[in-house]
Structure formats: structure tokens, C-alpha cells
Design a binder for these strands. Structure first.
Ligand SMILES: [Mn+2]
Ligand SMILES: [Mn+2]
Ligand SMILES: [Zn+2]
Ligand SMILES: [Zn+2]
Lengths: 141, 141
DNA sequence: ATTGTAAATAGAAATGATTTCTTTTTAGAA
DNA sequence: TTCTAAAAAGAAATCATTTCTATTTACAAT
């Protein structure tokens, strides 16, 4: 299953610009979530000029297109990560090292039936410390 | 079950100040979530001087103490609501009229067992349009 | 009741992550 | 190659939220 980000972008009617492709492969290499500024700093290694607003805009567009996912972080800053899994699932995020672990469970089917209204989206996210971080700094993020 | 907010606050080692009590009863009267500024505007009816930072601080303290709950909103602004239900549950929030509906389901017990780490918190929230809003403005928040 | 003290608050000011704006460049279709 | 809408740079603005300091207050201990 070779990842063809250019094709993915075309499906979303987004142009396959070098910067978009770089953002995607950059995030795909990481197993953790990243902030726009961190992505920007890494991109600057390969692009002489790249604006932070471009990174913000692209991360948002890619998330809206479903290619990457947003993290809901207690500190209220934006974070994004790339998850190669295509089926619907959710995540356990480490608040310390930012590692992301799949959670292959979603009770939303049952929930949606009970709701008296139209469901537009749902959030399921588990926050904590991964095993490594829990062992090293015993409890506090 | 008469709500004794003063007692609740003392349990949290928070002083039962008139403003805190006013925030709690104000939110308890509403069936929808409110922004700090909205809470502030209402408080100003009864308090000659009340600072917006006080409202922000108290809403955060009350949420940390578990007396009120935060909404995770797509627009990334802060919102809070009061839920009288004491058992663990989650919510369906209307993005249009801000009404909140209980969801008496949480698959977290099963999830926590599978996670390779220490769970500190979890988010389950369903966003959409309540029946009334879905009928009136057919689909868009 | 009075006092002492940590907690709470007002008000003003700062903050800084995110967004907006305008001009220039580019991807990709024709 | 040409054309055009989309994308991007760079600078600037935004504004919800936080920080800071002086003052006031809740309430526990006299
Ligand atoms: Mn995943
Ligand atoms: Mn509830
Ligand atoms: Zn970790
Ligand atoms: Zn509604």
C-alpha cells in the first residue's frame, strides 16, 4: 500500500504542491502529533521561504479533507498527526512525549441512535501517559 | 435534592464567594453552554463591578473542580455548562442553539483496558444540531 | 464581635497563537 | 506554451485569554 499523497490531494481537489506533500510526508514519518510551528521549523530545512500562515492553512485544509487528524489538547493549542489507518477509530495520546496509539473502538453507532437531533461529528480521545512516559515521570505530564 | 453550591465549593477548598455562587446558579438555570463573556454580561446585572478575568478564572476553577463542564467547540473558544447529573456520562451539544443533551453511555471502561499507558482523562462529545435546530435550519450550524 | 491571613478580585495591560490581508507565484488544465 | 484559479509569502492585525499588582474579602481563629 504505497502512499500516494499527490493522488489523495487530487481526490480532495487540492493542488499537490511541494509544500503540501512535504507536510504530509513529514507527519507520516512521525508517530506523534506536532504543532504548526514545529512543522514549520522542519519545513524550513527544505524550503528557503515558507510562511507560518501557509502551514496553518495547509494543516487545516488537510485535516478538513481527512488526510490528517487534529488533537484536542488541554493546553488548547493546535496539534496534528498523520494516521495511516483508514478504518474509523480513535486515539490515545501521550501528553508527555506526544505519541499516538490507536483505539479500535467507537461506541458512536449506539450513541447516535439515542440522540434527539442530527449528529454532525463526534470526538473520542483518551489522554494520558504512554507506558514509557508513565514509568519515567511516574504521573505528571 | 436542593443544590447547595456553597457546600460544594467548600468541599473543593474554594471560598463560597457571591460571584462564584452567582456563576453556578446562573449556569444551573440554563440548559445550554455559555461563553465566559456571556456569563460576565449576565453577572454585571447583579454586580456593580466584576472583571472578565474573574469570570475566566472562576469558570476554569469550577471546571477543574468538576462542578461545571467544558465544551470542546469547533471554533476553539471556551464554553461551559452546568449539568445536574452526578453519574459519569457525556453530552450531545447543539452547535446552533447550544442546547446540551445527556448521553448515558461511555465505552471508556473497555477502552482503558486496551491502552498501553496511564489514562488521565478522556473526551467523548457528540456535536450536531438538536431536533429543533435541525428542523429549522435543515443542516448547517 | 474582632482580627489575621490566605484567597479572591478589579482593572489595566500584555500576550501570542492564529488569522487576515495584499501582492506575487505556481500547479495543472487547456 | 498559455491561462487562471489556487496557493503562498510576508507583514500586520486580531482578540480571546492570561498575567500582573494593588486592593478587598471570606472565614477561621481568637
Ligand atoms: Mn490511528
Ligand atoms: Mn449531563
Ligand atoms: Zn509518552
Ligand atoms: Zn439546537
Amino acid at each position: 500500500m504505497p502512499e500516494n499523497f499527490a493522488h489523495n490531494l487530487k481526490d480532495l481537489k487540492l493542488k499537490a504542491t511541494p509544500k503540501r506533500l512535504a507536510i504530509l510526508s513529514l507527519l507520516a514519518e512521525e508517530l506523534s502529533y506536532a504543532s504548526p510551528e514545529e512543522v514549520w521549523r522542519k519545513l524550513r530545512r527544505n524550503f528557503a521561504s515558507i510562511g507560518l500562515p501557509t502551514v496553518y492553512r495547509n494543516l487545516e485544509d488537510l485535516a478538513n479533507g481527512g488526510l490528517i487528524t487534529k488533537v484536542i489538547h488541554p493546553n488548547r493549542q493546535l496539534y496534528y498527526y498523520f494516521c495511516p489507518n483508514s478504518h474509523h477509530h480513535h486515539h490515545f495520546i501521550c501528553l508527555s512525549c506526544r505519541k499516538v496509539e490507536d483505539i479500535n473502538f467507537c461506541g458512536m453507532e449506539e450513541i447516535e441512535k439515542k440522540v434527539d437531533g442530527t449528529v454532525l461529528s463526534h470526538i473520542v480521545q483518551v489522554n494520558g501517559l504512554c507506558r514509557d512516559c508513565a514509568e519515567s515521570h511516574g504521573g505528571t505530564p
